[in-house]
Computed example of a mutant assay.
Amino acid sequence: MGEGMSVRRRVLLAASLTVVLLGAAVAYVVVAGHRANAPAAAASAVDAGPGDRVLFRSTAAAEYGRVGTVARGSEAGVRKLSGLDCDRVYAAAGRGICLRPDGPLATYQLAVLDAGLRVTDTYPLVGVPNRARVSPSGNVLAWTVFVTGDSYNGGRFSTRAGMLNVATGETVDSLELLSIIRDGQPYRAADVNFWGVTFVDDQHFYATMSTAGKRYLVSGDVAAQSVRTLAENVECPSLSPDRTRIAFKEALHGSPAKGWRLTVLDLSSMRRTPLAETRSVDDQAAWYDADTVMYGVRRGTRQSDVWAVPADGTGTPRLLIPDAESPAALGN
């Protein structure tokens, strides 16, 4: 194994420890180490195992941050809520990831969840959670966190992304430690950032890489410890259930300052299809099914709703889950 990975259950992201100053709070946006004897969350009646349901994080005032499920086809109806609070949540194949607050001073925690949304393991995470994903097998968890303090970045936010295989204990401490092939050539730069992992399987993934003012879709191979660029102006990819397409947010005119457009990329032809959602969506979309993409749309600073839109560019957006974000279709 190279320096970017380890099969030991050890400190995660220690190689990329970064001090974060965010206002008066101190944050080290990093998974700092394994907390061996963390208390488990209270048992939940919510079933997050495979089934015809959608998992989500509530943004309703009375239940803010709580994780729940709704039945597919009745998403605006009765919602079952757990006692678990998360800032970001995702699940697949009966295992979940929850990024949540863990004490004062802007500290956070990565919690590993079972199908009943019970916490089975925790890792201190100090900083600002941004994205979370689980591989189709449920074995590999991926996270993205915000970080400041990189010398090349003038104090602005950067990101760190990593992975944990809970079946083997193998980690990718930071994607920045992997070798990079950009436009067919080996590439190294101090300003490389990664975020928004989406999985093909336990060994292969897609993510966003930024460097030199550009953002790329990259294809990654954990065993080879490498990534390669595939296309420019692709952020927060989400792989379709049939693995043939990627939903993503595309910066308008190549500039994130101008907003984003939800788009689907066909991986065989690399053809892009803008979706019928014309609002600027700053989220990592998820697939409701093979034909539909779902995503969070903010209403102010705390509230959001989950919307859905056809993946072929037709139709119109529809409200899927009110007062919700961070959706995951649990499937069968």
Rank of each mutant, 00 (worst) to 15 (best):
Ala61Trp: 11
Ala62Arg: 10
Tyr64Asp: 13
Tyr64Val: 12
Gly65Phe: 03
Gly65Leu: 06
Arg66Met: 08
Val67Ile: 15
Gly68Pro: 12
Val70Thr: 07
Val70Gln: 03
Ala71Glu: 15
Ser74Glu: 14
Glu75Phe: 07
Ala76Ile: 08
Val78Asp: 12
Val78Leu: 03
Val78Ile: 09
Lys80Gly: 10
Lys80Ile: 04
Ser82Arg: 05
Gly83Asp: 10
Asp85Pro: 09
Asp87Glu: 14
Asp87Trp: 03
Val89Phe: 06
Tyr90His: 14
Ala91Tyr: 04
Ala92Met: 12
Ala93Thr: 09
Ala93Pro: 12
Gly94Phe: 04
Gly96Tyr: 05
Ile97Asp: 01
Ile97Trp: 07
Ile97His: 00
Cys98Gln: 02
Leu99Ser: 04
Arg100Tyr: 00
Pro101Leu: 03
Asp102Ala: 13
Pro104Gly: 01
Ala106His: 09
Ala106Trp: 12
Ala106Phe: 14
Thr107Trp: 07
Thr107Phe: 03
Thr107Lys: 12
Gln109Tyr: 07
Ala111His: 01
Val112Arg: 07
Leu113Gly: 02
Leu113Asp: 04
Leu113Lys: 02
Asp114Trp: 06
Leu117Gly: 10
Leu117Trp: 11
Leu117Val: 03
Val119Arg: 01
Val119Ser: 13
Asp121Pro: 10
Asp121Val: 07
Tyr123Ala: 09
Tyr123Met: 05
Pro124Phe: 00
Pro124Asp: 03
Leu125His: 06
Val126Glu: 13
Val128His: 00
Val128Cys: 02
Val128Gly: 04
Asn130Lys: 12
Asn130Val: 14
Asn130Trp: 14
Arg131Ile: 13
Arg133Asn: 15
Arg133Cys: 14
Gly138Ala: 01
Gly138His: 09
Val140Gly: 11
Leu141Lys: 02
Ala142Cys: 11
Ala142Phe: 07
Trp143Asn: 07
Trp143Leu: 09
Thr144Phe: 03
Val145Leu: 04
Thr148Tyr: 01
Thr148Gly: 13
Gly149Glu: 06
Asn153Thr: 05
Gly154Trp: 03
Gly154Leu: 00
Gly155Ser: 08
Gly155Leu: 01
Arg156His: 14
Phe157Glu: 02
Arg160Gln: 15
Gly162Val: 09
Met163Pro: 11
Leu164Ser: 05
Leu164Asn: 02
Leu164Gln: 02
Asn165Gln: 05
Asn165Tyr: 05
